[in-house]
Design a protein around this nucleic acid. Structure first.
Lengths: 340, 340
DNA sequence: TTGTAGGCGTTATCAC
DNA sequence: GTGATAACGCCTACAA
């Protein structure tokens, strides 16, 4: 049988209340009793019972805020689905969720939403814009006692408690790893990135180069162009890329604009098949996989990102678990049509 | 606030005990009260609180038995790790785990272990040999009230409640999907399978052929040989395969013997790189990935299989949840060295 | 500074 | 058949 507060209380000859005060650092305990209780609890290997905690936590009425740059982005639809699923599971514990979505990368707008949502909640799940202002806003909310979790994009220097998402460097490494076996280790690659201003995109390119240098001396990057995650722009820049480099035989698409880039490839109707590695599985991307335009795409577990973020919030707020892992990194998975 | 048994009791003007009897089909309730309570509960959308259930379940002292053909198989080391991890988490609810491992595919031995373990437990997690005797033993245990979950291999016709594992057909489809992009849709493939007696291996081949026919008219299987999951045998049969078919340029390894097959490929030192797709990530397989002998390997989430099986047992036994999904299928993931 | 008691939701055990 | 009551482990008022 497991150790309970009650048992510790009996052994220490104090009341359950006192043990609770010690174990949860509520103060108002004589130092001697405190250290004694702590010693016994330690000795017996006390582990709080999550069910008991959860039951008692019902009265707390916990609200979790969510701010995501998700509108028009199918990736985040999945993240939200994960959050909603977890919400369902946690309503029994008095947890509510408050979601605010936004469209573009407007720092002021995100700050405003963070303030609006943050002032009503115990925790905030956030897909932050990489900007100093946002970092400060995070810190400010944390100071006010909000438990902040970043998803998909991290701001390491902020006071946020956790990050849930993928490792972008490894995403690039994985992309090069699979590109290597796709091309027999010999390729002239055009890179269509989202923006040089987005850290994640740059990290993917860095990871790609890292594996290139270490493992594939015959893979070469011809040029890197920006699509601003826009299909029309992607179409144009990819077209130019293809025209400029007739020898190009592979594309590495680090971000959005996948469909536009693919359409450019289709429009040029080259003899040789151009190998394409992309990210995520937006409907358009899946369509291009079906048409065998894209060879593989790399998947970042969006649903799990949402779910996991909620789990972390829950176990902190409801079960009072200390955060052990500051970063929860999900694998970069390689997908073909068959295992999507 | 959510609906509780207490609230329903108040509304129906009965005691909580009566509501509990109705909702858990314990009998000894007047039919009128029964249907009335049921109606109200339905109407209000009653959902039992898992924490409450878990707390009350502590007295039950649940024991989960595990019988795995795991010895000498790194895949199952991971499954066991998943089970152990879940065990830790569930000890707080009075759940104990009893693991028995075995070595080869000895039906009598497995039957004996199933009986030995099965007679002391409330649930059994089993990696079954595909044999009628095992099926009967499962049914027998189920009749005796044991909750049976199969992992990694299923026996569909048995009375087991759940299966946790991968979809073998899809495993083969995925293998062909990635083989297609590896080879530009043009390959002469040798298949090294484990045994024609093992359903899962045959299903992988079937899935592979399915995608071949639908999508890759230029991929062709030259011959299928058996390795009996043994490296030495795999070495020999692969060697013969390579000698018999100089035009062979790809290997599909459906099961064990991966290392032996790779060594055969290395020993023949062909000019052209032979593309290899295998399953799982045993240490030897990882080594061959590192040496760029194997191009990709397909991963079946062994850790998650163990964890999920425990989760299912827990939510059934402790939370009394009805089983909604009879099969919990994990994705076949494509791995290169970089995203292992 | 410490103890007591009631409640979170469910269930098992009595007593009626 | 049914109801009352005491757990399960934890937390929070309030009383001392």
């Amino acid at each position: 049988m497991s150790i309970t507060i009650k048992k510790i209380a009996e052994i220490c000859n104090v009341s359950r209340g006192t043990v609770d005060r010690v174990l949860n650092n509520r103060g108002k305990v004589k130092p001697e009793t405190e250290s004694f209780v702590r010693k016994i609890a330690e000795q017996m290997g006390y582990e709080p019972n999550p069910a008991g905690k959860a039951l008692a936590a019902k009265k707390k009425n916990i609200v979790v805020g969510v701010v995501l740059i998700s509108e028009g982005n199918p990736f985040f639809d999945e993240v939200i689905r994960g959050i909603r699923e977890a919400e369902k599971e946690y309503t029994a514990y008095g947890v509510r969720v408050l979601i605010q979505t936004m469209h573009g990368y407007d720092v002021e707008e995100q700050c405003r939403l963070m303030e609006e949502v943050g002032s009503q909640v115990n925790a905030l799940i956030l897909n932050p814009i990489s900007d100093l202002k946002i970092q400060h806003k995070i810190d400010q909310l944390v100071e006010r006692g909000v438990f902040v979790v970043t998803v998909n994009t991290d701001i390491e220097n902020s006071k946020r408690s956790c990050y849930v998402g993928s490792d972008y460097i490894n995403g690039g490494e994985t992309a090069c790893g699979i590109m290597g076996v796709l091309t027999g280790g010999r390729a002239k690659v055009g890179v269509v990135t989202g923006s040089f201003k987005v850290a994640g995109h740059n990290q993917r390119i860095a990871g790609f180069k890292k594996v290139m240098e270490k493992k594939y001396s015959q893979i070469e990057i011809l040029e890197i162009v920006e699509s601003e995650d826009d299909d029309i722009l992607a179409f144009e820049v990819t077209n130019r890329l293809l025209q400029a480099y007739p020898q190009l035989d592979a594309l590495f698409i680090t971000a959005g604009g996948v469909y536009g880039a693919c359409r450019a490839v289709l429009s040029q109707a080259r003899q040789q098949h151009i190998k394409i590695v992309s990210f995520d599985s937006a409907p358009n991307t899946v369509e291009m996989l079906k048409q065998q335009v894209i060879d593989v795409t790399i998947y970042q577990h969006p649903y799990t990102q949402g779910r996991k973020a909620m789990q972390i919030v829950f176990s902190y707020l409801v079960n009072g678990l200390e955060i052990k892992k500051e970063k929860h990194i999900l694998k970069n998975e390689i997908k073909v049509l068959e295992n999507l």
